[in-house]
Design a binder for these strands. Structure first.
Lengths: 269, 269
DNA sequence: TTGTGTGTATTGCAATGCGATACACTTGCA
DNA sequence: TGCAAGTGTATCGCATTGCAATACACACAA
């Protein structure tokens, strides 16, 4: 009875599963939808923008924004022209980063790795169809996106994603690839599921992945999986270099052994 | 009428201001309190831990955790022994970092600064009694805490905090110092309000702060304020060096001019 | 066993959040 | 200058929705 009522009222921005769940607290979901409205924003948002982005009406947006603002999760921008995410978000970021045992163990190891290879080293966490950057150790010449924790790239076309999929069952990996919306990043990005699965098989055979210009032109990346309990892949280490300095072969010959050793040091709780 | 009801029911974990506000949505606040329960945690939390940390009962904690988990903001830990912050938090971190115009402008500048000074450079944001690290460019020899975005240090005893307070009115700065719970980090941390305000005055006179072993023994830090519209300080750049390599004097002579120039490049929208 | 700790499930009641509506103010176009 | 469309803000009655009590299944230890 109450579930049918729930299901009929409100906007359709939640999954059926969630709306059918009697324990599910809608107002929390709406609040998070409001925060998530910033995901697709490229400028400060107005109340109307937020309402639209979150799939709620202006009135609800008003109250929710008001509340989140008074808690510090949303703020007005410097010229008072719109809303921006608030600084309290970073408190939770810190909680995530410091409480994750994997990241705790990984940090000194990837720092050491970067010292040895002198190229950019990243740690990314497996999250279904994407991998999320949790730490980046930039190389000397890096200029942009130096520390954007939270950036994510698709699993299907990244060195880390390939390394992770090589540790999953064929079916599970294939399911991820097929479910992904495979937009190419560069002309060389692999988008055909069969080609991708061949790459995953090659990765499984050699123990690490070699991704050439999959995300960025001129970049080669080596990926190795990090496994947790029961041998399941939970993250990946990747090292990225420039094709103006390396051939893909030379790069992997030099970097892969070190990256594999680092991954082994972190893996298996 | 309804406000008295609100004020009487529930636990006392919200400010009077918030409970008196008819637009304030309590259930959102409770959800955020649940997430904030991790702030003081050093191991995965049980439902009971969360209930206690958030000041709610087990029943409420159950529903809220359930909801936040189904949304990805909370997860079970790898051995299924407790709850941890979930990876979706990083999505909001990214929103915060990339949408903040100050951080956008600052990133290339502090990278350039790090290249020039070859020491650790940080950008921290002013948030009342604390300053929050938003970006860190580590030096070569850095080993821990390399990229813990979200870390914060007190305004009253950090190089960045002094630089920021030097741009506030005497009253405002003094209010921050007095309101702070001035626990010393090292034996040399200044805790007496008068001494701190002298340091702030010296900072105002010379244009940058010099903090010697205020947070960490063996460390000297130079701080310069970054200002926003109307000349209000909104952030600080700081450069930290080791007293085993530098005297405080030499360090500031070498670093301060470059840091000041960087701050000028970012300041004043 | 018994006890204390987990996490999970169900339910009726009423407190609470919803959403319609109205208003003050700014901006931009005619 | 006036109108229109945008902004953010305020109010309020109704019924939806979240609350809190209770019960259960499953651990692990004593």
């Amino acid at each position: 009875m109450r579930n049918t009522l729930r299901a009929e009222s409100g906007v359709r921005y939640l999954s059926d599963e969630q709306r059918a769940d009697p324990l599910f607290t809608n107002s929390i979901a709406r609040a998070m939808q409001v925060l998530a409205a910033f995901h697709h924003a490229d400028r400060p948002l107005s109340l109307a923008d937020i309402a639209q982005g979150a799939g709620i009406d202006r009135s609800a947006a008003q109250r929710i924004v008001h509340t989140l603002r008074s808690l510090g999760y949303i703020r007005r921008d410097a010229e008072d022209r719109g809303y921006l995410p608030g600084i309290r978000i970073l408190d939770h970021t810190l909680d995530f980063l410091r409480m994750d045992p994997l990241i705790q163990r990984a940090t000194p190891v990837i720092l050491e790795l970067r010292r040895n290879v002198r190229e950019r080293v990243d740690l990314s966490l497996f999250d279904g169809q994407r991998v999320v950057y949790a730490a980046r150790m930039q190389s000397k010449r890096e200029t942009f996106y130096a520390t954007l924790v939270g950036h994510s790239v698709p699993t299907f076309c990244s060195s880390g994603g390939w390394a992770i999929m090589a540790r999953l069952s064929e079916e599970e990996a294939s399911a991820i690839v097929k479910a992904s919306d495979r937009m190419p990043f560069t002309p060389r990005t692999l988008t055909d599921p069969d080609h991708i699965m061949e790459e995953v098989a090659a990765t499984r055979a050699r123990g690490y992945s070699i991704a050439v210009e999959q995300i960025l032109l001129g970049e080669v990346a080596i990926g190795v999986a990090v496994t947790g309990p029961q041998g399941r892949p939970v993250a990946a280490i990747h090292v990225a270099g420039s094709l103006s300095e390396w051939t893909a072969q030379d790069f992997s010959t030099r970097v892969a052994p070190l990256a594999l050793e680092a991954a082994r040091a972190i893996s298996h709780i």
